[in-house]
Design a protein around this nucleic acid. Structure first.
Lengths: 209, 209
DNA sequence: AGGTATTTAAGGGTCACTCCCTATTGTATG
DNA sequence: CATACAATAGGGAGTGACCCTTAAATACCT
């Protein structure tokens, strides 16, 4: 009986990075058949057709992001091991990921050797997480569900460099309302008093807003 | 007479990306010998030893960044064509790059086909710049030479979330001095009046500070 | 129907940042 | 040596952001 060939679907919207991952895996893992996806939607389709042993997903992708793809794979109960490959930014998403049943999580930055290690672990039924990830887990994570809709609206507008006055005008409410929202947001985030701390927080976290 | 083999030095501190670039070039450019460097210092040493036909440099690298490497190559008058490969961030550096005698400039994002095109152009003595780059050229660029040393210090400290009061204490000067510096910086940047605009500007531009 | 959360908004306060002007000192640079 | 720029710093005004409390109208949930 011929052993079934190891199939891996790899999804990354960055073509050079995709090429790099493929190249590394081809060199380090023997007898593997690789399928490349350039975005989340493509990845999902490939996975449901091919049913690969392993699915490697970038998180930031157009159409469907990696997390959404993983959710759909899990919902559809397709039997494939899921590994996330990510840049360092998405720590805010880690809580979401942590609740899912994921087999591996690697940081792109350091990962030539880690990729094959991770693949081997996962094939042996073990989970594999980059050490660097664990630092992020320690960090206090932002749970956006603590905010109300209005608060999130205000946050987004602050991130767009709007002042309270401008936000008030845009939403047809009083400045005082926006003021209240800002205050409540500050409370929820436990920001230090004074010092424009919300403004700073927003700008430091704007990528995830 | 055997034609000399085409030699290319490629420098990128991101291992997967480096692998990707190498893989793409190996596939698309025949009979090429590739040398990989993981940082600027390594790249410079390789270039001076190997004297490759083409040198491809990432801009953001440890030890020596791509621009510094290029400068040293040009100073040493090593005969190699220089191509920059970059993520989209470094628009502020474009003026610096533009003044140098560089043969190509590609954005990493879109560049599977662009890489071989660029290499071919450069081998034919033509220059090659990503179309997307040209958008950046139109954008008003920040020329940091307009700032004095103190102003740059202040900018850096603002980026570190310091208030004027804290900056004053750290530099053993009066708050009013910092105030003046902030004011002068605002003038130089033509920031809109009021609205914490310097604070916002700093946070939006903090990666380049 | 009663409790809880959200949205709205006001009053009244402090502080940080911005604006604009002036002025002194030191230090390059022509 | 004169002019220019840099760094320093003061006065004084105005605005934006944050602080805190209270409270009404909705909405939603059990």
């Amino acid at each position: 009986m011929i052993p079934e060939k190891l199939k891996i679907v790899i999804a990354d919207d960055h073509p050079l990075l995709l090429e790099g991952i493929v190249s590394v895996i081809e060199k380090e893992v023997l007898g593997v058949e690789i399928f490349k996806a350039n975005n989340g939607a493509e990845a999902l389709q490939m996975v449901s057709e091919i049913k690969p042993t392993i699915t490697i997903l970038d998180i930031e992708m157009p159409f469907l992001n990696g997390i959404e793809v993983a959710k759909k794979i899990l919902e559809a109960k397709i039997d494939t091991k899921i590994i996330f490959l990510t840049l360092h930014k998405e720590r805010s998403l880690f809580n979401e990921i942590n609740q899912m049943n994921i087999d591996g999580y690697i940081l792109k930055e350091f990962s030539i050797s880690e990729i094959s290690q991770c693949i081997k672990s996962v094939l042996n039924g073990k989970k594999y997480f980059s050490k660097e990830i664990e630092q992020f887990i320690e960090e206090p994570l932002i749970d956006f569900s603590i905010f109300t809709k209005s608060e999130i609206n205000v946050l987004k507008l602050i991130a767009q460099e709007k002042t309270s006055k401008e936000i008030a005008e845009m939403l047809f409410v009083s400045i005082k309302t926006i003021d209240s929202h800002r205050y409540n947001i500050c409370k929820k985030l436990n920001l230090k008093p004074k010092k424009n701390s919300l403004l700073k927080w927003v700008f430091q976290n704007s990528p995830i807003l």
